[in-house]
Design a protein around this nucleic acid. Sequence first.
DNA 1: TCTGGGGTCCTAGGACCC
DNA 2: TCTGGGGTCCTAGGACCC
Length: 371
Amino acid sequence: MDAFFASVELLHYPELRGQAVVVGGRSVHQPVSQPDGSKRFARLRDYVGRGVITTSTYEARAFGVFSGMGLMKSAQLAPDAVLLPANFEAYRDYSRRFKAAVASIAPLIEDRGIDEIYIDLSDFAEDSLSLARRIKQAVLEATGLTCSIGITPNKLLSKICSDLDKPNGITLLDMADVPSRIWPLPARKINGIGPKAGERLDRLGIHTVGELAAADEELLIRHFGRTMGSWLHQVAQGIDERPIKTSREPKSISRESTFQRDLHARLDRSELSTIFTDLCLRLADDLARKGYAARTIGIKLRYADFHAVTRDITLGQPTADALTIRKAAGECLKRVPLEQRIRLLGVRASALFPLSQMAVPVAASQAELPF
DNA sequence: TCTGGGGTCCTAGGACCC
DNA sequence: TCTGGGGTCCTAGGACCC
Protein backbone atom coordinates (compact mmCIF):
# COMPACT_ATOMS: atom_id res chain seq x y z
CA MET A 1 0.00 0.00 0.00
CA ASP A 2 1.22 3.51 -0.79
CA ALA A 3 2.07 5.63 2.29
CA PHE A 4 -0.54 3.50 4.01
CA PHE A 5 -1.22 5.20 7.37
CA ALA A 6 -1.05 8.68 5.86
CA SER A 7 -3.30 7.65 2.96
CA VAL A 8 -5.94 6.31 5.37
CA GLU A 9 -5.82 9.62 7.25
CA LEU A 10 -6.35 11.54 4.00
CA LEU A 11 -9.57 9.56 3.46
CA HIS A 12 -10.82 11.06 6.72
CA TYR A 13 -9.33 14.53 6.17
CA PRO A 14 -9.58 15.10 2.41
CA GLU A 15 -8.87 18.82 2.95
CA LEU A 16 -5.25 17.80 3.67
CA ARG A 17 -4.71 16.28 0.24
CA GLY A 18 -1.66 17.69 -1.47
CA GLN A 19 -0.11 18.84 1.79
CA ALA A 20 2.89 17.55 3.70
CA VAL A 21 1.34 15.30 6.36
CA VAL A 22 3.02 12.96 8.82
CA VAL A 23 1.55 10.37 11.16
CA GLY A 24 3.22 9.62 14.48
CA GLY A 25 3.83 10.64 18.06
CA ARG A 26 1.63 10.09 21.05
CA SER A 27 -2.09 10.77 20.85
CA VAL A 28 -2.03 14.28 22.18
CA HIS A 29 -2.70 16.32 19.10
CA GLN A 30 -6.08 15.33 17.69
CA PRO A 31 -7.42 17.81 15.12
CA VAL A 32 -9.67 20.41 16.79
CA SER A 33 -12.95 21.49 15.20
CA GLN A 34 -13.27 25.26 14.73
CA PRO A 35 -16.48 27.31 15.12
CA ASP A 36 -16.63 27.72 11.33
CA GLY A 37 -16.70 23.94 10.84
CA SER A 38 -13.12 23.65 9.65
CA LYS A 39 -10.46 21.79 11.62
CA ARG A 40 -7.28 23.01 13.16
CA PHE A 41 -4.42 20.59 12.74
CA ALA A 42 -1.29 20.28 14.80
CA ARG A 43 1.97 21.11 13.04
CA LEU A 44 5.27 19.35 13.45
CA ARG A 45 6.78 22.53 14.95
CA ASP A 46 4.30 22.34 17.85
CA TYR A 47 5.30 18.85 18.93
CA VAL A 48 7.15 18.33 22.18
CA GLY A 49 8.35 14.97 23.41
CA ARG A 50 9.38 11.56 22.19
CA GLY A 51 8.19 9.72 19.16
CA VAL A 52 8.93 8.94 15.54
CA ILE A 53 7.18 9.31 12.23
CA THR A 54 5.36 6.13 11.25
CA THR A 55 4.38 7.36 7.78
CA SER A 56 4.69 10.56 5.77
CA THR A 57 2.87 11.62 2.61
CA TYR A 58 4.94 11.96 -0.55
CA GLU A 59 4.68 15.74 -0.17
CA ALA A 60 6.30 15.42 3.26
CA ARG A 61 8.98 13.06 1.98
CA ALA A 62 10.02 15.82 -0.39
CA PHE A 63 11.23 17.67 2.75
CA GLY A 64 13.31 14.67 3.72
CA VAL A 65 11.09 13.34 6.51
CA PHE A 66 10.61 9.58 6.41
CA SER A 67 9.24 6.88 8.68
CA GLY A 68 11.45 6.12 11.64
CA MET A 69 12.74 9.67 11.91
CA GLY A 70 12.40 11.35 15.31
CA LEU A 71 9.62 13.94 15.37
CA MET A 72 11.85 16.62 16.86
CA LYS A 73 14.35 16.19 14.08
CA SER A 74 11.70 16.08 11.37
CA ALA A 75 10.22 19.31 12.76
CA GLN A 76 13.44 21.05 11.76
CA LEU A 77 13.09 19.85 8.18
CA ALA A 78 9.35 20.38 7.78
CA PRO A 79 8.03 22.57 10.63
CA ASP A 80 4.75 23.33 8.83
CA ALA A 81 3.88 19.73 8.02
CA VAL A 82 0.58 18.59 9.52
CA LEU A 83 1.04 16.06 12.33
CA LEU A 84 -1.66 13.46 12.95
CA PRO A 85 -1.75 10.87 15.73
CA ALA A 86 -1.74 7.23 14.62
CA ASN A 87 -5.12 5.51 14.57
CA PHE A 88 -4.23 1.81 14.45
CA GLU A 89 -7.82 0.62 14.63
CA ALA A 90 -8.55 2.40 11.36
CA TYR A 91 -5.38 1.04 9.74
CA ARG A 92 -6.21 -2.52 10.78
CA ASP A 93 -9.68 -2.08 9.37
CA TYR A 94 -8.37 -0.87 6.00
CA SER A 95 -5.73 -3.60 6.09
CA ARG A 96 -8.44 -6.26 6.38
CA ARG A 97 -10.36 -4.60 3.55
CA PHE A 98 -7.50 -4.46 1.07
CA LYS A 99 -6.46 -8.04 1.84
CA ALA A 100 -10.03 -9.27 1.38
CA ALA A 101 -10.25 -7.42 -1.93
CA VAL A 102 -7.09 -9.10 -3.20
CA ALA A 103 -8.23 -12.48 -1.87
CA SER A 104 -11.44 -12.19 -3.89
CA ILE A 105 -9.25 -12.35 -6.99
CA ALA A 106 -6.23 -14.37 -5.85
CA PRO A 107 -6.63 -16.30 -2.58
CA LEU A 108 -3.02 -17.51 -2.12
CA ILE A 109 -1.77 -14.65 0.03
CA GLU A 110 1.11 -14.35 2.46
CA ASP A 111 0.66 -11.72 5.13
CA ARG A 112 3.64 -9.41 5.50
CA GLY A 113 2.26 -7.05 8.09
CA ILE A 114 -0.38 -4.38 8.04
CA ASP A 115 0.27 -2.89 4.59
CA GLU A 116 2.03 -5.55 2.54
CA ILE A 117 1.34 -9.00 1.08
CA TYR A 118 2.81 -11.53 -1.31
CA ILE A 119 0.37 -13.08 -3.77
CA ASP A 120 0.99 -16.37 -5.59
CA LEU A 121 -0.19 -15.82 -9.17
CA SER A 122 1.41 -18.96 -10.60
CA ASP A 123 -1.90 -20.51 -11.59
CA PHE A 124 -3.22 -17.50 -13.50
CA ALA A 125 -3.17 -17.73 -17.27
CA GLU A 126 -4.13 -14.05 -17.55
CA ASP A 127 -1.33 -11.72 -18.60
CA SER A 128 0.42 -9.99 -15.70
CA LEU A 129 -0.40 -6.41 -16.66
CA SER A 130 -4.17 -6.88 -16.78
CA LEU A 131 -4.01 -8.96 -13.61
CA ALA A 132 -2.12 -6.20 -11.80
CA ARG A 133 -4.64 -3.62 -12.99
CA ARG A 134 -7.53 -5.80 -11.85
CA ILE A 135 -6.04 -6.23 -8.38
CA LYS A 136 -5.34 -2.51 -8.03
CA GLN A 137 -8.89 -1.71 -9.12
CA ALA A 138 -10.33 -4.12 -6.54
CA VAL A 139 -8.19 -2.56 -3.79
CA LEU A 140 -9.20 0.95 -4.86
CA GLU A 141 -12.90 0.06 -4.84
CA ALA A 142 -12.67 -1.60 -1.43
CA THR A 143 -10.61 1.11 0.28
CA GLY A 144 -10.25 4.22 -1.87
CA LEU A 145 -6.50 3.64 -1.66
CA THR A 146 -3.75 2.97 -4.19
CA CYS A 147 -1.06 0.34 -4.00
CA SER A 148 2.02 -0.65 -5.96
CA ILE A 149 2.58 -4.09 -7.42
CA GLY A 150 5.59 -6.00 -8.67
CA ILE A 151 4.94 -9.18 -10.65
CA THR A 152 8.05 -11.34 -11.05
CA PRO A 153 9.14 -14.99 -10.72
CA ASN A 154 9.71 -14.83 -6.94
CA LYS A 155 9.20 -12.97 -3.68
CA LEU A 156 12.67 -11.43 -3.61
CA LEU A 157 12.22 -9.73 -6.98
CA SER A 158 8.58 -8.81 -6.40
CA LYS A 159 9.51 -7.05 -3.17
CA ILE A 160 12.14 -5.00 -4.97
CA CYS A 161 9.91 -4.28 -7.96
CA SER A 162 6.85 -3.26 -5.94
CA ASP A 163 8.98 -0.34 -4.79
CA LEU A 164 10.39 0.75 -8.16
CA ASP A 165 7.33 2.60 -9.44
CA LYS A 166 5.73 3.93 -6.24
CA PRO A 167 3.15 5.29 -5.75
CA ASN A 168 0.32 3.67 -7.71
CA GLY A 169 2.76 1.65 -9.83
CA ILE A 170 3.04 -1.62 -11.66
CA THR A 171 6.40 -3.24 -12.39
CA LEU A 172 6.69 -6.46 -14.37
CA LEU A 173 9.98 -8.32 -14.61
CA ASP A 174 11.34 -11.75 -15.47
CA MET A 175 14.69 -13.43 -14.89
CA ALA A 176 16.14 -12.14 -18.16
CA ASP A 177 15.63 -8.57 -16.90
CA VAL A 178 17.69 -9.08 -13.73
CA PRO A 179 21.02 -7.82 -15.17
CA SER A 180 19.52 -4.67 -16.70
CA ARG A 181 16.93 -3.77 -14.05
CA ILE A 182 18.16 -5.22 -10.73
CA TRP A 183 21.94 -5.19 -10.92
CA PRO A 184 22.22 -1.37 -11.12
CA LEU A 185 20.31 -1.01 -7.82
CA PRO A 186 22.06 -0.50 -4.46
CA ALA A 187 22.61 -3.78 -2.62
CA ARG A 188 20.54 -2.31 0.24
CA LYS A 189 17.41 -2.71 -1.91
CA ILE A 190 17.51 -6.44 -1.21
CA ASN A 191 15.15 -7.37 1.58
CA GLY A 192 17.42 -8.68 4.32
CA ILE A 193 20.42 -6.44 3.62
CA GLY A 194 20.06 -3.73 6.23
CA PRO A 195 22.28 -0.88 7.46
CA LYS A 196 24.96 -3.15 8.96
CA ALA A 197 25.35 -5.59 6.10
CA GLY A 198 25.12 -2.71 3.63
CA GLU A 199 27.99 -0.94 5.35
CA ARG A 200 30.11 -4.08 5.45
CA LEU A 201 29.50 -4.62 1.74
CA ASP A 202 30.44 -1.01 1.06
CA ARG A 203 33.74 -1.60 2.82
CA LEU A 204 34.35 -4.56 0.50
CA GLY A 205 33.79 -2.23 -2.46
CA ILE A 206 30.41 -3.84 -3.16
CA HIS A 207 27.74 -1.18 -3.62
CA THR A 208 25.28 -2.52 -6.20
CA VAL A 209 23.44 -5.80 -6.60
CA GLY A 210 25.49 -6.36 -9.77
CA GLU A 211 28.74 -5.99 -7.87
CA LEU A 212 27.40 -8.45 -5.32
CA ALA A 213 26.51 -10.87 -8.12
CA ALA A 214 30.06 -10.60 -9.46
CA ALA A 215 31.63 -11.15 -6.04
CA ASP A 216 33.30 -14.46 -5.26
CA GLU A 217 31.03 -16.64 -3.11
CA GLU A 218 33.96 -17.78 -0.95
CA LEU A 219 34.82 -14.16 -0.20
CA LEU A 220 31.24 -13.50 0.89
CA ILE A 221 31.28 -16.64 3.06
CA ARG A 222 34.56 -15.53 4.66
CA HIS A 223 33.09 -12.17 5.59
CA PHE A 224 29.47 -13.06 6.39
CA GLY A 225 29.51 -16.73 7.40
CA ARG A 226 28.28 -19.76 5.50
CA THR A 227 24.53 -19.07 5.72
CA MET A 228 24.55 -15.35 5.01
CA GLY A 229 27.40 -15.55 2.48
CA SER A 230 25.68 -18.17 0.34
CA TRP A 231 22.40 -16.33 0.64
CA LEU A 232 23.97 -13.08 -0.56
CA HIS A 233 25.45 -14.90 -3.54
CA GLN A 234 22.07 -16.42 -4.41
CA VAL A 235 19.87 -13.35 -4.09
CA ALA A 236 22.25 -11.22 -6.14
CA GLN A 237 21.43 -13.49 -9.10
CA GLY A 238 17.73 -12.88 -8.43
CA ILE A 239 17.28 -16.46 -7.20
CA ASP A 240 14.74 -17.08 -4.44
CA GLU A 241 12.86 -20.37 -3.98
CA ARG A 242 10.77 -19.48 -0.93
CA PRO A 243 7.12 -20.46 -1.36
CA ILE A 244 4.22 -18.22 -0.36
CA LYS A 245 3.27 -19.00 3.24
CA THR A 246 -0.49 -18.63 3.50
CA SER A 247 -0.69 -19.21 7.25
CA ARG A 248 1.59 -19.31 10.24
CA GLU A 249 1.43 -19.57 14.01
CA PRO A 250 2.88 -16.61 15.92
CA LYS A 251 6.23 -17.26 17.65
CA SER A 252 5.95 -14.52 20.22
CA ILE A 253 3.59 -11.85 21.51
CA SER A 254 4.88 -8.76 23.28
CA ARG A 255 4.07 -5.36 24.72
CA GLU A 256 6.51 -2.56 25.30
CA SER A 257 6.42 1.08 26.17
CA THR A 258 8.82 4.00 25.90
CA PHE A 259 8.33 6.52 28.71
CA GLN A 260 7.89 10.25 28.23
CA ARG A 261 10.98 10.71 30.38
CA ASP A 262 13.67 8.28 31.48
CA LEU A 263 12.83 6.59 34.77
CA HIS A 264 15.05 5.29 37.55
CA ALA A 265 14.39 1.95 39.22
CA ARG A 266 14.75 3.39 42.71
CA LEU A 267 13.63 7.01 42.30
CA ASP A 268 10.59 6.16 40.16
CA ARG A 269 9.84 2.79 41.64
CA SER A 270 6.05 3.07 41.95
CA GLU A 271 5.62 4.57 38.49
CA LEU A 272 7.73 1.78 36.94
CA SER A 273 5.86 -0.84 38.92
CA THR A 274 2.52 0.43 37.61
CA ILE A 275 3.79 0.41 34.02
CA PHE A 276 5.31 -3.04 34.45
CA THR A 277 2.10 -4.54 35.83
CA ASP A 278 0.06 -2.85 33.13
CA LEU A 279 2.27 -4.33 30.40
CA CYS A 280 1.78 -7.79 31.93
CA LEU A 281 -2.00 -7.28 32.06
CA ARG A 282 -2.10 -6.21 28.42
CA LEU A 283 0.12 -9.13 27.42
CA ALA A 284 -2.14 -11.58 29.28
CA ASP A 285 -5.11 -10.00 27.56
CA ASP A 286 -3.44 -10.37 24.13
CA LEU A 287 -2.64 -14.02 24.84
CA ALA A 288 -6.21 -14.76 25.91
CA ARG A 289 -7.69 -12.89 22.96
CA LYS A 290 -5.47 -14.68 20.47
CA GLY A 291 -5.89 -18.02 22.22
CA TYR A 292 -2.35 -18.83 23.35
CA ALA A 293 -0.51 -19.76 26.48
CA ALA A 294 3.23 -19.19 26.78
CA ARG A 295 5.93 -21.23 28.47
CA THR A 296 8.64 -18.56 28.19
CA ILE A 297 8.23 -15.06 29.63
CA GLY A 298 10.82 -12.36 28.97
CA ILE A 299 11.49 -8.71 29.59
CA LYS A 300 13.28 -6.03 27.64
CA LEU A 301 14.86 -2.87 29.00
CA ARG A 302 16.27 -0.01 27.04
CA TYR A 303 18.50 2.31 29.02
CA ALA A 304 18.82 6.06 28.60
CA ASP A 305 21.88 5.47 26.39
CA PHE A 306 19.64 3.35 24.11
CA HIS A 307 21.50 0.17 24.89
CA ALA A 308 19.02 -2.69 25.38
CA VAL A 309 19.08 -5.90 27.40
CA THR A 310 16.71 -8.87 27.56
CA ARG A 311 16.14 -11.61 30.10
CA ASP A 312 13.77 -14.54 29.90
CA ILE A 313 12.65 -17.51 31.91
CA THR A 314 11.01 -20.75 30.86
CA LEU A 315 8.28 -22.06 33.13
CA GLY A 316 7.25 -25.64 33.84
CA GLN A 317 3.82 -25.02 32.38
CA PRO A 318 2.47 -22.70 29.72
CA THR A 319 0.52 -19.78 31.16
CA ALA A 320 -1.77 -16.98 30.05
CA ASP A 321 -2.39 -15.72 33.57
CA ALA A 322 -1.48 -12.10 34.29
CA LEU A 323 -0.25 -12.72 37.82
CA THR A 324 1.95 -15.65 36.78
CA ILE A 325 3.36 -13.55 33.94
CA ARG A 326 3.98 -10.66 36.30
CA LYS A 327 5.84 -12.92 38.76
CA ALA A 328 7.98 -14.49 36.03
CA ALA A 329 8.76 -11.09 34.54
CA GLY A 330 9.62 -9.87 38.04
CA GLU A 331 12.16 -12.69 38.38
CA CYS A 332 13.70 -11.62 35.08
CA LEU A 333 13.88 -8.03 36.28
CA LYS A 334 16.03 -9.09 39.26
CA ARG A 335 18.72 -10.31 36.86
CA VAL A 336 19.19 -6.98 35.12
CA PRO A 337 21.38 -4.00 36.08
CA LEU A 338 19.24 -1.11 37.33
CA GLU A 339 21.73 1.66 38.01
CA GLN A 340 21.14 3.55 34.78
CA ARG A 341 17.89 5.31 33.96
CA ILE A 342 15.47 3.40 31.76
CA ARG A 343 13.58 4.68 28.71
CA LEU A 344 11.72 1.53 27.69
CA LEU A 345 10.24 -1.50 29.38
CA GLY A 346 8.77 -4.49 27.58
CA VAL A 347 7.29 -7.92 28.36
CA ARG A 348 7.28 -10.79 25.92
CA ALA A 349 5.67 -14.22 25.75
CA SER A 350 7.21 -16.96 23.59
CA ALA A 351 7.18 -20.74 23.30
CA LEU A 352 3.49 -20.33 22.54
CA PHE A 353 0.89 -23.10 22.71
CA PRO A 354 -2.57 -22.71 21.18
CA LEU A 355 -5.12 -22.86 24.01
CA SER A 356 -7.27 -25.19 21.91
CA GLN A 357 -4.55 -27.84 22.23
CA MET A 358 -3.77 -27.22 25.88
CA ALA A 359 -6.21 -29.40 27.84
CA VAL A 360 -4.56 -32.72 27.08
CA PRO A 361 -0.86 -31.86 27.52
CA VAL A 362 -1.51 -30.00 30.79
CA ALA A 363 -3.44 -32.92 32.25
CA ALA A 364 -0.74 -35.33 31.11
CA SER A 365 2.10 -33.36 32.66
CA GLN A 366 0.19 -32.96 35.91
CA ALA A 367 -0.32 -36.71 36.02
CA GLU A 368 3.45 -37.16 35.94
CA LEU A 369 4.06 -34.94 38.95
CA PRO A 370 5.34 -36.93 41.97
CA PHE A 371 2.77 -35.29 44.29
C1' DT B 1 15.37 17.37 21.92
C1' DC B 2 17.68 12.00 18.92
C1' DT B 3 15.95 7.24 17.92
C1' DG B 4 7.97 3.67 18.41
C1' DG B 5 6.00 -0.85 18.75
C1' DG B 6 5.22 -5.16 16.94
C1' DG B 7 7.44 -8.98 15.06
C1' DT B 8 11.06 -12.92 12.73
C1' DC B 9 15.33 -15.20 12.18
C1' DC B 10 20.20 -16.23 13.22
C1' DT B 11 24.24 -17.08 16.15
C1' DA B 12 26.60 -18.74 20.01
C1' DG B 13 27.66 -20.72 24.47
C1' DG B 14 26.49 -23.73 28.21
C1' DA B 15 23.77 -27.41 30.39
C1' DC B 16 22.39 -31.79 29.84
C1' DC B 17 21.59 -36.31 27.69
C1' DC B 18 22.70 -40.66 25.14
C1' DT C 1 47.23 -39.13 32.38
C1' DC C 2 42.24 -37.85 29.57
C1' DT C 3 38.24 -36.83 27.80
C1' DG C 4 34.17 -38.38 21.13
C1' DG C 5 30.21 -37.06 18.69
C1' DG C 6 25.76 -36.13 18.29
C1' DG C 7 21.43 -34.04 19.81
C1' DT C 8 18.03 -30.71 22.33
C1' DC C 9 16.85 -26.95 25.29
C1' DC C 10 17.65 -22.53 27.38
C1' DT C 11 19.36 -17.91 27.37
C1' DA C 12 21.19 -13.42 25.41
C1' DG C 13 22.13 -10.43 21.85
C1' DG C 14 21.71 -8.46 17.39
C1' DA C 15 20.21 -7.66 12.51
C1' DC C 16 16.40 -6.81 10.04
C1' DC C 17 11.54 -5.85 8.58
C1' DC C 18 6.75 -3.44 8.52
